[in-house]
Computed example of a mutant assay.
Amino acid sequence: MKHAETVTFGGGGLDRAEDLRRHPEILETLPVKTLPMWRGKPLMNAARDGLALMDGHAFANLGTPVLLGRVEEAAVFARDISRLEVTGVADTLGAFIDDSEQTHSDLPEGTAFCELRQMMTRLAAFDAELAATARGVLEWHRTHGFCANCGVETQVGKAGWMRACAGCGRAHFPRTDPVVIMLVTRGNSVLLGRSPGWPDGFFSCLAGFMEPGETMEAAVRREVWEETGVRVGPVNYLASQPWPFPGSLMFGAHGEAISETIEIDPEEIAEALWLSREELAEVFAGTHPRILPAREGAIAHFLLKNWLADTLT
């Protein structure tokens, strides 16, 4: 496995069993396990270091099962059970940091629904990929219940991997939005930014959505220029990461800046700055007086940490 694939949510090796999506008669013969999801939160085991899969079609009266893949000859499904009345609902739901846990009497003892961004670094690669897949595809179903072409309500097909429209015959499939995230350097310094609404001191790599007809390299140069006024020359691909919050694929790239004056667009970004390698070392050591490291588990953290250690390639 390439070093780049060790990023969180990468390299899990999930057998997505596309063949079973097309052959429900075979799928029906396999033992079943279910990963319940509540408002995008996967069910975690009592130790909070792995997912808690339940035997059979658990909570069969709630949500639609979506096939995640084949695990040891069992078919593993995700099921959105957000209508379940749970205990532990807190004001932090949906916040930048949500450490609340939700439970229910029908769940295995000690298990709870936990925010994936809080748990992702505790999960083995396989469980992380399983959870990311579940969150991404269930969120797509939640927001795409009607045909974008004619407005008719769509029906689930292919074990949860498409929605069919009876009105115009269109077939709709889960979408992934490509996003570039940039490690922009100039000599011994790296360019970081902070979005409006982030906690004080939280900085990360610049990022932005790719546009139709645009290459990754062009998107990197455009986004950096739009947000900070910095021009980027050579661009190289580094690594990718599925980021199911709600449904992006992050393309990590290294961009070499050919200018250094920062002029931010306040509608795009709250602040941007150049940080030396030595200052970044202080950030990761937790000794910098102002700046906090990027969220652990996110590709920005991966890129910055490996740039600091000179292990990007």
Rank of each mutant, 00 (worst) to 15 (best):
L275E: 06
E282T: 05
T287P: 02
E282L: 14
A285C: 04
D265F: 14
G255L: 00
G255N: 03
I264L: 07
Y237P: 01
F284C: 08
G247T: 06
P242Q: 03
S240M: 04
A253I: 08
L238Q: 02
A253Q: 09
T287M: 04
L249N: 09
E278F: 13
P242H: 03
E279M: 08
P244V: 06
L249S: 06
S240V: 05
P289M: 14
A270E: 13
E260R: 09
I258W: 08
L280F: 05
F245W: 12
P244H: 02
I264M: 09
P244A: 12
H254D: 00
L273V: 11
S240Y: 02
Y237V: 00
H288D: 08
A253Y: 03
P289K: 12
L249H: 10
I262W: 04
L280A: 12
W274L: 11
V283D: 01
S259R: 00
A281Q: 07
G252K: 02
P246E: 15
A257T: 03
E267H: 15
G286M: 06
A253C: 15
A239N: 03
F245R: 07
W274N: 15
Y237W: 15
A239Y: 02
I269Y: 08
L280P: 00
E268A: 05
E271T: 08
W243C: 10
L275C: 13
A239K: 00
S259C: 06
E278P: 12
E268H: 15
A285R: 13
E282C: 09
I258G: 10
L280T: 05
W274T: 13
D265A: 13
P244K: 05
T287F: 11
F245M: 08
E260D: 14
G286A: 08
Y237E: 04
E256C: 04
A281R: 14
I269H: 04
S259Y: 04
G286H: 12
Y237A: 01
A272E: 00
A285E: 09
F251D: 02
